[in-house]
């Protein structure tokens, strides 16, 4: 059974089709990357999947069940979400932020889960610090720790690496890969196509609300797609260090 899926899902905002008959399926154990130029509908696709935006047509499902019919607690048990919005209102201790991913457990277990997740993002020694006293990158890692501390079978992360330094970007994607290795399904939006090609099993390319490619990185980012979706002239190339995008603007 797929962890999540969209079937001919459309979303209209202010009369414009932001998502246009999108089909998608995410299986446990895989990391799916959603790529596309600005305004292509990447965030809307994630929000449609999670039932955060009403569909104008089609269906969205989590764990084989229609999203619209799920109760709040049921939905949270099936999917966890790291939104792009990283504003944190109050300077709670970092471990409390991470523990918000474990509100379904009693507080000692939640604290334990938070500390484990913080250690994984390299913030074990900052657990007691106030989160608003930290840099943007550290805040982003604390929020990633919250996502990791959840137990949902599907992790949905919107731009999890934006604002992170190169090392932290690689770490974040490595951790999401570990989660997939442990049997969770992961879907992320990414801007860096080289990173996306290396970190994801499968890429979904969006352009103007439509899915124009869905497959392994080399296939999804073939030259025609790069040209049509991103206005780029080039290709993914295999190097000893992994896939690299070599392209220039059209």
């Amino acid at each position: 059974m797929s962890a999540a899926g969209l079937e001919r899902a459309s979303v209209r905002l202010a009369g414009r089709a932001v998502l246009d008959q999108a089909n998608l399926s995410i299986e446990p154990g895989e990391v799916v990357g959603v790529v596309g130029p600005n305004g292509a509908g990447k965030t809307t696709l994630l929000r449609a999947l999670l039932g955060l935006v009403p569909l104008a047509g089609g269906t969205a499902s989590l764990g084989g069940r229609r999203v619209g019919l799920l109760k709040e607690a049921e939905r949270a048990a099936l999917a966890a979400y790291l939104p792009q919005e990283r504003r944190i209102a109050w300077s709670l201790p970092v471990w409390r932020i991470a523990a918000l991913g474990a509100v379904d457990r009693p507080s000692p277990a939640a604290r334990q889960a938070a500390l484990v997740a913080l250690a994984r993002v390299g913030m074990a020694d900052l657990a007691e610090r106030g989160v608003l006293e930290m840099s943007g990158g550290e805040r982003a890692r604390a929020l990633l720790a919250r996502l990791l501390a959840t137990r949902a079978p599907l992790l949905v992360a919107d731009e999890p690496v934006s604002g992170l330094d190169p090392d932290a970007q690689l770490l974040a994607l490595e951790l999401l890969r570990e989660e997939a290795g442990a049997g969770r399904a992961v879907i992320v939006t990414l801007h860096d196509l080289t990173l996306a090609a290396r970190a994801c099993d499968r890429l979904v390319v969006l352009r103007a609300g439509q899915v124009v490619a869905d497959g392994p990185p080399l296939e999804a980012l073939r030259p025609e797609i790069l040209r049509a979706a991103f206005s780029l002239d080039g290709s993914l190339q295999e190097t000893p260090a992994g896939l690299v995008l070599a392209a220039r603007r059209l």
């Binding site: 929000r47 999670l50 955060l52 709040e72 607690a73 939905r75 949270a76 048990a77 999917a79 966890a80 979400y81 790291l82 939104p83 919005e85 504003r87 944190i88 209102a89 109050w90 709670l92 932020i97 918000l100 509100v103 379904d104 929020l143 919250r146």
Partner: peptide, 16 residues
């Protein structure tokens, strides 16, 4: 407490 992270994160927290 959940609202600390904003509306969307709170919406997926499982709390009503």
């Amino acid at each position: 407490v959940m609202m600390t992270l904003g509306e969307e994160a709170a919406a997926l927290s499982g709390l009503p």
